[in-house]
């Protein structure tokens, strides 16, 4: 739900301000790749209506966000491709593919794709964090969006602890990826929490 909320916050922000300054389209592209790799099972496996609906919403809304930022004026006119230039193609995709291949529990296409998607998701925030560090001043809605985008993985960790004790659920790759992903946010969360505590604008060092 937090993940869904962060997407809705971002959509709302783009529609309201008609600007995507401070938003990394490259992060959304990473997520689009994550979703396409992971949700291939839409074609051969049914878990629940909720699960299927969320997958479809995540994929379609992420592609829509990319479309808005890259191609749909007036939002696309504000997209700064020089600032948002983190080369995830080299730095993230390659390593995620290699890690996906060597750490997959089983050498099947869906399993390798799933594993690579977990590793890629864990670092997908990097283009966004690096963009914000260049700009330093973070708009309120952008701060809420990034905070919810980080918080959802933290709540997964709580759920994993519950599932471990309640069902004996084990998911080593997911756990490790989740810890890396949440860890990358810790710094941002600190400055976000401070800005909320003091009621000031979020400014990164």
């Amino acid at each position: 739900m937090l993940h869904l909320m962060s997407i809705l916050l971002l959509l709302w922000k783009l529609k309201k301000s008609k600007s995507c300054v401070g938003i990394s389209c490259r992060m959304q592209e990473c997520y689009a790749i994550v979703f396409c790799l992971r949700y291939l099972d839409l074609f051969y496996q049914f878990i629940s209506v909720y699960n299927t609906a969320m997958k479809v919403v995540f994929i379609s809304s992420t592609f829509y966000l990319i479309f808005l930022m890259r191609f749909q004026p007036p939002v696309s006119a504000t997209y700064d491709r020089t600032a948002d230039s983190f080369p995830y193609e080299q730095y993230l995709l390659g390593p995620a593919a290699v890690l996906g291949f060597i750490s997959a529990e089983e050498w099947s296409i869906p399993e390798i794709f799933w594993t690579a998607s977990i590793w890629l998701e864990s670092v997908s925030i990097l283009p966004q964090l690096i963009l914000l560090q260049q700009l330093r001043e973070v708009e309120n809605l952008t701060a809420e969006f990034v905070a919810t985008m980080g918080a959802y993985r933290f709540f997964y960790i709580l759920n994993w602890i519950y599932r471990y004790f309640a069902e004996g659920y084990v998911n080593w790759i997911g756990w490790l990826g989740g810890i890396v992903q949440t860890g990358l946010y810790v710094d941002f969360f600190y400055y976000y929490a401070m800005s909320k505590w003091y009621g000031q604008k979020l400014v990164l060092p």
Partner: peptide
């Protein structure tokens, strides 16, 4: 238990 089979999380 085999938590890896049929990933049920998003």
């Amino acid at each position: 238990q085999d938590g890896q089979k049929g990933h049920d999380e998003l």
